[in-house]
Amino acid sequence: MKFGRVLMILSSLLLPMAAHAASWDVGPPVGAKAPALHAVDLKGAPVSVRKLSGKNGLVLVFFRSAKWCPYCQKQLIDMKDAPAPLAARGYKLAALSYDPTEVLAQFTEKREIPYPLLSDLGSVTIDAWKLRDTRYKPESFAWGVPYASIYVISPKGVVTAKLAEEDYKVRPPLSAILSTIDGLPKGR
Rank of each mutant, 00 (worst) to 15 (best):
K43W: 09
D120Y: 12
G122F: 00
W68D: 10
T108G: 03
S123E: 10
P116I: 05
A34T: 04
R64H: 09
R111Y: 04
E112Q: 15
R64S: 08
S12G: 15
E139C: 02
P46H: 13
L42I: 13
M17C: 12
K55R: 14
A84C: 10
L76K: 05
R89S: 11
A22Q: 15
W24F: 14
C69W: 07
F63S: 04
P35E: 06
S11I: 12
R111W: 01
K80N: 09
I9N: 00
P114E: 06
I113S: 04
S123C: 10
D81N: 00
R50G: 10
Q73K: 02
L118C: 06
G54V: 05
P70W: 06
K55P: 11
A39T: 03
P114R: 05
F141E: 14
A66Q: 00
A66G: 10
G31S: 15
D41W: 02
T108E: 03
Q73N: 11
K51R: 15
L118I: 11
S97M: 03
L76T: 02
D81I: 06
D78E: 05
G27V: 05
I126T: 14
P29H: 09
P116K: 08
A128L: 08
E109F: 01
Y91E: 00
A87F: 03
S123K: 09
K130T: 13
K92C: 02
V40S: 05
K137D: 14
V30G: 01
W68T: 12
W68G: 02
V30A: 02
G54H: 03
